[in-house]
Amino acid sequence: MKIESTRFGTLEITEEDILHFPLGIPGFLNEKEFVLLPHGADSPFSFLQSVKEPNLSFLLVDPFAFYKDYEFKLDDILVREMELTEENPPQVWVIATIKENIKDMTVNLLAPIILNTQKREGRQIILEQSPYSIRHKLFAESTGTKVPGGGK
């Protein structure tokens, strides 16, 4: 099937490429299908393009490429609902917000995207009692080794 993207033009995808977000994404609750478009093999970036809305795509970042100590606990109910296991661990991404100056780009460490790549299902979760915020500067802070308040 073909999908349209403002950013990437016409994309040829298959059913198996589609990631299902049964709950949508906060702010976009009706968007339930996306495709993940890697930026490059060695790149920590990817794009998440909506299947039905050409205008909707997110820039995703592999948080561990920038914040080695990034960690959180997934609650048991979510693990069960998403059918995550040790053999099928979640893939974790965070959403970047691009600013006028690209180096001021921030990432939302408080609300990561969790993917079950086998089941092709994703959710954006909100961490509870977390030291992280929705706006961590990707570059100013990445030169240090720790996220302020993080790494617990």
Partner: peptide
Amino acid sequence: YDAIVAENQEAAIPGKLPDLSMLISDL
């Protein structure tokens, strides 16, 4: 929750495609 909705809405801007390769070389 409202802040995450607002941040997602700001993050979802289709037009401005950054030159990520520049960032990666900086990295």
